[in-house]
Amino acid sequence: MFGRKKDEPSAQDQVDQLAADAAVKGVGKGAPTPKRKEQEAARKRPLVPTDRKASKEAERIAVQDQRQKMRQALDTGDEKYLPLRDKGPQKRFARDYVDARFSLGEYLMFGALLFVVISFIIPSGSDALSYILIGFWVMFLAVFADVFILSRKLRKGLTQKFGDVERGTVWYGSMRSLQFRRLRLPKPQVQRGQYPA
């Protein structure tokens, strides 16, 4: 009742069968284990290349090629070679959304430059300078309100399209809106009014 069944093979028979199968299939290393000295010699590479001048030249060409690809990607928007801060579908959406709209922030630097130039021309005690200063602050507050509205709309669009918004994407889009359109990198890939779907 508790004994082995007569037709069941023994443990030794199973081992013998596995050994025979392995011999037929050719399972195994097929070669002796190499000595440690041989393995270390095979892995050894010189720390400094034998031809330093050629190595330096090859490295310089590789770096130059990588920079050229990155520069071209900044012009064309090719995701493969873009810098890490510009990569990803959410960053592309933010860029396209910002580039499609008119932003007051584009002209903030021009307004600041104009204010500096006028402040040198007009005497410091005149009322005209105070009006110009008030005008500059009004422009600054208008830009702040525009960026705030943009960030809300951008977050809403990102949430609708991607669900979860990556950290820093809304800030990325907001800072892009403060740059003059022609000087933005990566260069705009959409026309004004051509919002992303």
Rank of each mutant, 00 (worst) to 15 (best):
V147H: 07
R95Q: 01
R67K: 14
F148K: 01
F136Q: 00
P123T: 11
R43A: 14
L47V: 06
L74P: 08
G111F: 08
G88L: 13
S119P: 01
V147T: 12
R60Q: 15
D99V: 00
Q72K: 09
D96A: 11
G125P: 04
Y131D: 02
I118D: 04
M70H: 04
A42M: 13
V117K: 07
L47P: 03
G105R: 01
D75K: 06
Y131G: 00
F148I: 03
I122W: 05
V98E: 01
L108Y: 01
L104Q: 07
R71Q: 11
F148T: 09
F102G: 07
K87G: 12
P123H: 11
M139Q: 04
R85A: 14
F136P: 03
P123G: 15
R71V: 10
K80V: 15
K87E: 13
P49M: 08
L141C: 10
P123I: 06
P89I: 05
S130A: 12
G77F: 00
V138S: 04
D75C: 02
M70S: 13
V116R: 09
I118P: 00
D51T: 11
L114A: 12
R85V: 15
I121K: 05
P46S: 14
P123K: 11
K56L: 10
K56E: 04
F120R: 08
L84T: 14
D75Y: 07
A41Y: 08
F144K: 06
K56W: 05
D99Y: 00
E57T: 07
G125S: 14
K53T: 09
